[in-house]
């Protein structure tokens, strides 16, 4: 059988969502962002939400998220995405409003906005990429950096006496009365990707149904920042990150 006999529409089992455009991504090979971007595009397309969705991109590696997924976007100042999303959803309640934020954006400079938007129960979905490092600025310590983990600003490893503890902000958000769904997922295996997709769908459905704030944390790899190969980074994440940030639902109401 020739290859051209195989490449036919009736044999198609998988294709890239059309909402994910052909712009070359700036992400490093092995980074989790690309997978999560694809999931978002796929979900919006499958559910027919592409023309209802308004995304808020962060400052950090995902600052250019708006270049890759063809929906309406606004690019927020560092940490302020949940404040923007609050206004967008309040002013346009019929829209699907979500933020896409990294650990520095959501759990350091933007902790106040994260906590208060969730505590008010804003009907938004927050997609939280936790790779325990500041990727864009060159691998500095993040609020979620593990104890002992080496970064550009903890060259000998994170120390409690100097740097305090890693922050499990999803547990914090789960405690708030305004949050309706808080879950922690990953995208390092096909099975994990499918579970993460189901979680993001649930979060988006909650936003549309006006049930409160949903937060989907994706425990992610930053193999470039961690100075590992993509495969090593996946293994390291399972062995070390999952201990501090265990996978599963924290709250589902």
């Amino acid at each position: 059988m020739e290859i051209n006999d195989i490449i036919k529409p009736e044999n198609c089992v998988y294709k890239k969502p059309t909402l994910l455009n052909d712009t070359n991504m700036h992400y490093c090979p092995g980074c989790s962002h690309g997978v999560v971007h694809k999931l978002i595009a796929e979900i919006l397309e499958e559910k027919g939400w592409g023309d209802k969705a308004i995304g808020v991109s962060p400052v950090g590696c995902a600052v250019f998220a708006y270049k890759y997924v063809d929906i309406d976007w606004v690019e927020a100042a560092h940490g302020r995405a949940p404040a923007l999303a609050t206004a967008i959803k309040r002013l346009q309640p019929d829209k699907l409003v979500f933020t896409y934020q990294g650990d520095g954006d959501l759990a350091a400079i933007g902790t106040g906005e994260t906590i208060h938007a969730a505590n008010r129960g804003e009907n938004i979905a927050i997609i939280f990429i936790n790779n325990a490092i500041y990727g864009m600025t060159g691998g500095q310590m993040a609020p979620t950096t593990l104890l002992g983990m080496k970064t550009a600003t903890t060259p000998y490893g994170r120390r409690v006496d100097l740097n305090g503890y890693p922050l499990a902000i999803s547990e914090l958000v789960a405690h708030l009365d305004g949050s309706c769904y808080v879950t922690r997922q990953s995208v390092h295996t096909p099975a994990a990707v499918r579970k993460a997709k189901a979680a993001i769908i649930h979060a988006f459905e909650n936003s549309m149904a006006g049930k409160g704030t949903s937060l989907v944390e994706i425990v992610s790899t930053c193999n470039a920042g961690w100075k590992m190969t993509p495969a090593q980074a996946n293994d390291w994440m399972v062995e070390h990150m999952f201990k501090k940030y265990p996978i599963g639902d924290l709250k589902n109401e």
Partner: peptide, 26 residues
Amino acid sequence: MVVVQAESELASINMVYGGAACGKAV
């Protein structure tokens, strides 16, 4: 009209940013 008491001026101005991005009079 929507009225929100924000958690800080930092949040208020960024809510204004979000609302303004929607073409709303904020």
